[in-house]
């Protein structure tokens, strides 16, 4: 099954050398260097303050990058929420963003599929490279970005429509003309919800339990066949059993999708993620990236004292 049946980005097709077809040559292409080099950012014309450079671990694993963030800053009006964040998002891996409240995790996540465009007064500076293009470029259609980079929210928010319609909506508005029943079934299966709802697809999505609603939202996000799924504390409103289900699901989905998850739960980050980014807000409440690296390294051998303090619970 082609994951690109909706066609490429509407604004312009990415250069073939930079972004080959997502599925065909993803493994074949030589992986770019896993860590962001200073000259990478410099060549993109982004000035990086050396003082803002976060500590990074050297990866031994060879991974492709789904997103490359270079000097991403976000502002709400005159308030700066995040400051010049530079980090990669490895493809087909789970990347966790951790940090105390108000450090800009959600803001960073919402920058990645331009959901912040919807907030009046929000501005983003910097560059996020996605398939060879800067998706923050005003000429890039935000609707296409969101189609290819899906999102799951903190509070389950299914549409007040039937389960079937919830899943089918995204594909339908994007012009999917294949077998809708199969797509719905497939998406629900991948979201590990099919067995529970297969007999009542006409039931309202709001009639499901909280955990089921969140899995329905994940199915809804999968149904448009995105490359990346952003999850904003997807389990924070759920009980431990439902949380565990969502976590298992994230691990399974990572085989096909790149997942970025914001979480407050350190254990969760340790359990589900391959890579972890630790964000921290300074005195002036501006979020900055402190450390990025494989989760194993971050949790067992943090290079920055602040990371260690946070992980060991000294920040509370």
């Amino acid at each position: 099954m082609s994951r690109n049946f909706f066609g490429l980005m509407r604004s312009s097709a990415p250069p073939a050398t930079e972004a080959p077809d997502a599925i065909g040559s993803e493994r074949a292409a030589p992986p770019p260097p896993p860590t962001m080099k200073q000259d990478d950012a410099a060549s993109a014309g982004v000035h990086l303050d050396p003082n803002l450079e976060a500590v990074r671990h050297d990866f031994t694993e060879e991974v492709d990058m789904a997103l490359k963030l270079r000097g991403v800053s976000a502002f709400y009006g005159s308030f700066q929420a995040i400051d010049r964040m530079t980090m990669p998002i490895p493809r087909n891996r789970v990347t966790a963003l951790i940090g105390p409240s108000g450090c800009g995790k959600s803001t960073l996540l919402r920058c990645c599929n331009r959901m912040n465009d919807l907030i009046p007064g929000a501005r983003i500076a910097g560059e996020i490279e996605f398939e060879g293009r800067n998706l923050l470029d005003p000429t890039v259609d935000a609707v296409d970005v969101r189609r290819r980079i899906g999102m799951v929210f903190q509070k389950p928010n299914p549409f007040p429509k039937s389960i079937y319609e919830n899943v089918a909506f995204g594909a339908r508005i994007n012009g999917y003309s294949g077998d809708m029943d199969r797509l719905v079934e497939d998406s629900l299966r991948r979201a590990a919800l099919w067995d529970e709802v297969k007999d009542e697809l006409d039931k309202s999505g709001l009639a499901l339990s909280g955990g089921q609603q969140q899995r329905l939202c994940i199915a809804r996000a999968i149904a448009v066949q995105p490359e990346i799924i952003l999850m904003d504390e997807p389990a924070s409103a759920l009980d431990p059993v439902a949380t565990l289900k969502i976590e298992d699901l994230m691990r399974e989905l990572a085989e096909h999708y790149t997942i970025v998850v914001v979480t407050h739960n350190m254990q969760q980050a340790g359990r589900v993620s391959d890579y972890t980014a630790f964000l921290l807000a300074g005195e002036e409440r501006v979020g900055r990236l402190v450390e990025f690296g494989p989760t194993q390294e971050i949790f067992t051998n943090p290079l920055d004292q602040r990371t260690e303090d946070y992980i060991t619970g000294r920040y509370g």
Binding site: N113, M115, L118, V143, D144, R146, R147, R148, G150, M151, V152, F153, K155, N157, P158, F159, P160, F169, G170, I173, N174, C217, R220, A221, A223, V224
Partner: peptide, 26 residues
């Protein structure tokens, strides 16, 4: 609620699609 609009935007709906299929019916 804004969460409904966000949910629709997040699956790649245009502004008019969000209004037409979600905001207006509700």
């Amino acid at each position: 609620p804004p969460s409904m609009r966000e949910a629709a935007y997040a699956v790649g709906a245009t502004r008019w699609q969000v209004i037409r299929f979600h905001v207006l019916p509700y």
